[in-house]
């Protein structure tokens, strides 16, 4: 960044191929700064919510009154809001989110939520990719035709995640029931209801998340519109005229809108994840959040909320990076 070359390279006559990588530095730094600012704002919003709420968290601890001074010092309740915020942020940066009130005594929040978040990511990322892939495939298939598929994707996509999960579990269990009665198979290992983790349940969760939470219809509609627009674009005509493969151009141009939708929907996916994990009894950060909220285990609930906000901001950062690396025009706007 400190390289004086940068200023000279900014002239239109410079070697674009070499300047390209340099021109990415500023927008990327800017995006990272936006990421950090947004995350800091999200943490502030959560702290404000806590601060504005009536009630005293010390009351939640059984022997809270005896160790009130110690607890208040640990949670920063004896300080003003700005001090508390800075303290929370500073500790969070060092990976210290306090210790849980309800899980093993003395267990730190980080060591509790990180493994759970890992298990959740294994559902979240495939679901996000699957919904993008499904929407892309369907959109490419049906683009330009007035389609029943678009309407159908809409009908399925508006259904609440829990309802989709409910219907899926219902149908699966019915199927298993009739299959067993008819003697097609013995008792299968994939009844969706019992509280054990199974591959069937995880894939069901991924499918429900991918189809629900509105993303599928949005991607499908965006892809259809974009493909129609691209078909009329002159550069596609040029590619056709030169005999170059068109699909490459089309896919490359579809990436920025897909990235926009992916990060726009990331928050819905995280919210949906909490629901799916709870409804299908999966063991991840989502069900841990629900449990922590039920038991009023604030440190764990706060930690997971901050982590969720970080995940959404991270998705936004990634999406923006994809967009500016694909579309040079966005780089100039970003500067």
């Amino acid at each position: 960044m400190a390289d004086p070359q940068l200023r000279h390279d900014d002239t239109p006559s410079s070697d674009l191929a070499r300047a390209g990588s340099w021109k990415l530095v500023f927008p990327v730094l800017r995006l990272v700064a936006v990421f950090m600012l947004t995350l800091a704002g999200a943490v502030l919003a959560i702290q404000l919510l806590l601060w504005a709420s009536p009630g005293d968290p010390v009351d939640l601890v059984p022997n809270g009154e005896e160790i009130r001074a110690q607890l208040e010092a640990e949670w920063g309740l004896d300080r003003s809001l700005p001090e508390r915020y800075v303290q929370f942020l500073g500790r969070a940066l060092r990976g210290d989110l306090g210790s849980s009130l309800t899980y093993r005594p003395g267990a730190t929040v980080t060591e509790l939520i990180l493994p759970a978040a890992g298990r959740s990511l294994r559902l979240l990322i495939p679901a996000l990719l699957l919904s993008m892939g499904l929407g892309l495939g369907l959109g490419l298939l049906t683009a330009g035709r007035s389609s029943v598929v678009r309407r159908l994707a809409q009908v399925v996509s508006v259904a609440p995640v829990f309802l989709l999960a409910f219907v899926a579990v219902h149908l699966l269990n019915e199927l298993a029931f009739y299959g067993m009665e008819a003697g097609w198979f013995g008792r299968p290992g994939w009844f969706a209801l019992p509280d054990t983790d199974s591959a069937m349940k995880s894939s069901l969760a991924i499918l429900v998340l991918a189809v629900g939470s509105g993303a599928l219809a949005e991607v499908h509609a965006a892809v259809e519109d974009e493909v129609v627009r691209l078909r009329n674009a002159t550069f596609v005509d040029a590619a056709v005229a030169r005999g170059a493969p068109v699909w490459k151009h089309v896919l490359w141009n579809l990436l920025p809108p897909l990235a926009t939708i992916a990060y726009g929907r990331a928050a819905f996916f995280v919210g949906g994840l909490v629901i799916v994990e709870k409804v299908l009894h999966l063991n991840g950060a989502g069900s841990m959040l629900w449990q922590a909220c039920r038991l009023r285990d604030y440190p764990v609930a706060l930690g997971i909320t901050v982590l969720a906000a970080a995940a959404v901001c991270g998705a936004r950062l990634l999406g923006d990076l994809v967009r500016i690396s694909v579309d040079p025009r966005l780089r100039e706007v970003a500067q």
Binding site: L49, G264, G272
Partner: peptide, 23 residues
């Protein structure tokens, strides 16, 4: 615009859950 980005970055379901757990 900044506020809008910030609130969009906290999943609303999680925010509501947190709010009713506290209040």
């Amino acid at each position: 615009r900044y506020l809008s980005t910030v609130t969009a970055s906290i999943p609303r379901f999680v925010l509501v859950l947190l709010a009713i757990a506290i209040n």
